[in-house]
Amino acid sequence: QEPLTASMLAAAPLHEQKQMIGERLYPLVHNVHSQLAGKITGMLLEIDNSELLLMLESPESLHAKIEEAVAVLQAHQAME
């Protein structure tokens, strides 16, 4: 699968752009946290597209964000 680029994204309708990024992000998140993959991906998709593209290219920064998302979720669940 070819890497997702900014120009590929720009050619897509706005509402499709997050879906396109999500389709790339989801399997990577699933590798780390299969149970929470949908939720974590949804949280990450609120980040700017330009930053998300960088994260797709950088496993280290992606993993850091995934861990951050898990920590936020756990803190949120602990409060309820």
């Binding site: 389709e23 992000l25 989801y26 949908g38 949804g42 609120e46 936020v72 979720l73 803190a75």
Partner: peptide, 21 residues
């Protein structure tokens, strides 16, 4: 530092994803 991630974000549903074997 407070995270900017939102725990109430909508869950993402992939169109096409198969479990890796």
């Amino acid at each position: 530092r407070k995270s900017t991630l939102n725990p109430n974000a909508k869950e993402f549903n992939p169109r096409s994803f198969s479990q890796p074997k």
